[in-house]
């Protein structure tokens, strides 16, 4: 058993912090976490990148403070070509990311909940290039049930 504080050390010890050590790829959910920043107009922005030979999004879990519009910068610092398929209301957004490239995506997401994004080429998704966008917050007051506040887990 382990504790949250020991997580990084145990990932390293077990070889789960890189591709082709313990597993073949980078196990989903073992990457970094980061937060989008909010502009004065409520729109949000963030950057995710792929570092050389890490086959993982950095951050692999991106947290938005609430639902709405996100301007996402995507950077591929890897020495191989990848791409990105991203959730957004209307249609999913797709972008090629050749070696050493940088691009943008404009996303619109509802909150609360979380969404997967990935690099849908070869088996990038299974090798580690699958990340999550977590949207915090609650639904609008008018959408909530007319009842007393209920216990939550």
């Amino acid at each position: 058993m382990t504790t949250a504080q020991e997580r990084a050390g145990l990932l390293d010890e077990l070889g789960l912090d890189a591709q082709n050590k313990a597993a073949l790829g980078q196990v989903l959910g073992t990457g970094t976490i980061g937060q989008a920043t909010e502009r004065s107009d409520g729109r949000m922005e963030a950057t995710v990148r792929i570092r050389p030979d890490e086959i993982s999004w950095d951050p692999s879990i991106l947290v938005m403070p609430h639902g709405g519009d996100l301007e996402l910068e995507l950077i591929n610092d890897d020495l191989n070509t990848h791409c990105a398929l991203l959730p957004s209301n209307g249609d999913r957004k797709f972008i090629w990311l050749v070696n050493h490239s940088r691009g943008k995506a404009h996303l619109n997401l509802d909150g609360p909940g979380y969404y997967w994004f990935s690099s849908p080429t070869g088996n990038d998704e299974g090798r580690g290039l699958t990340g999550a966008i977590v949207v915090l917050g609650d639904v609008p007051p008018e959408a909530r049930l007319d009842r007393p506040n209920q216990p939550r887990p």
Partner: peptide, 9 residues
Amino acid sequence: VDAGEAIDQ
């Protein structure tokens, strides 16, 4: 390299 902007799938 400028990858541009993501498009609708």
